[in-house]
Amino acid sequence: MSIQHFRVALIPFFAAFCLPVFAHPETLVKVKDAEDQLGARVGYIELDLNSGKILESFRPEERFPMMSTFKVLLCGAVLSRVDAGQEQLGRRIHYSQNDLVKYSPVTEKHLTDGMTVRELCSAAITMSDNTAANLLLTTIGGPKELTAFLHNMGDHVTRLDRWEPELNEAIPNDERDTTMPAAMATTLRKLLTGELLTLASRQQLIDWMEADKVAGPLLRSALPAGWFIADKSGASERGSRGIIAALGPDGKPSRIVVIYTTGSQATMDERNRQIAEIGASLIKHW
């Protein structure tokens, strides 16, 4: 058993032996400061991975655009179909130039040979490839079927209504393609630790998130040596930015963190910096 498999397999085991986890309101002070700095709403939640207890939250039940963070949920739905014998990670999917949409750094290189379902999930999560996400959405029946999958998990909040890139429109008060921090954190925890997916599929999902290559300026920039993080970021119109993550010290995840912001006029660099500073406060007061 690899170190990674050891880590995921023991998450339920550690729940019975973990020390009490204490919240630190200092992080919420930073979240509120980020709102002031960005001139935008910020949603935040910090969840204990083992118990599911909410440690801190700010606007946990307000809607925010999901942006590309939905791609983790999408690959969770794909893995659920794999577990049920309805899909194979090794199945190759062929597509054409007409299928390519904006920001497809991986799929645009494989027009001649296509990509496997496994490769598409990797591209969608680690590189946020939009065509990969659309191709995967097609395999499960489209955005409405992803919403149905989430409903069956008990998440009646999170919804996907459109495809890439239209889902990134982020119109104020538009509930399409949105979630709430509390709903996203709970759903992510179920995917990573619950019985919905097999152990192998849970491991695969967290491996893809751990290999994320496009979230460096966010929480990863504040991470001390030896800490673990598996994450997925997102960005969209109207100053929207977000990240969902499982992270913790000693090389294993122990908390879920979800951060969303929307409605800012700030630059992408400034949005990144504010999220990184929230992460730094979280780690300092861990």
Rank of each mutant, 00 (worst) to 15 (best):
S2W: 09
I3T: 13
R7C: 08
V8Y: 15
I11S: 09
P12I: 15
F14Q: 04
C18Y: 11
K30E: 03
V31L: 12
E35K: 00
D36N: 11
R41E: 06
V42A: 05
N50T: 15
N50H: 12
N50C: 11
G52C: 02
K53F: 09
L55Y: 08
S57D: 07
P60F: 03
E61F: 14
E61L: 13
E61N: 14
R63A: 03
M66C: 05
F70G: 03
R81F: 06
R81W: 05
V82W: 07
V82K: 05
V82T: 08
D83I: 00
A84G: 13
A84P: 01
Q88K: 15
Q88A: 12
H94P: 08
S96Y: 11
Q97F: 15
V106G: 05
K109V: 11
K109M: 15
H110Q: 07
R118A: 13
R118Q: 13
A124N: 02
T126K: 07
D129S: 01
L136F: 02
L137Q: 01
G141E: 04
F149D: 04
M153N: 09
M153I: 14
G154R: 05
R159I: 03
L160C: 13
R162S: 06
W163F: 10
W163S: 06
P165I: 06
E166M: 10
E169S: 12
N173K: 10
N173Q: 10
D174N: 05
E175A: 11
E175I: 13
M180A: 14
M180H: 13
M180T: 15
A183R: 06
T187R: 05
K190V: 11
L192V: 08
G194S: 13
E195R: 13
A200S: 15
S201E: 00
Q204S: 09
W208R: 00
W208Y: 05
E210D: 07
E210K: 11
D212N: 13
P217A: 13
P217Q: 12
P217I: 06
L218D: 00
A222S: 14
A222M: 10
L223M: 11
L223W: 02
L223H: 02
I229A: 03
I229D: 00
R238E: 14
G239D: 06
G242F: 00
I244R: 01
A245L: 02
A246F: 09
L247T: 03
D250M: 10
G251L: 07
G251I: 05
K252Y: 11
S254P: 05
S254I: 08
R255V: 03
V257E: 00
Q265G: 14
Q265A: 14
T267R: 09
T267D: 12
D269Q: 12
E270K: 10
Q274S: 12
I278F: 04
S281F: 08
L282T: 07
I283S: 04
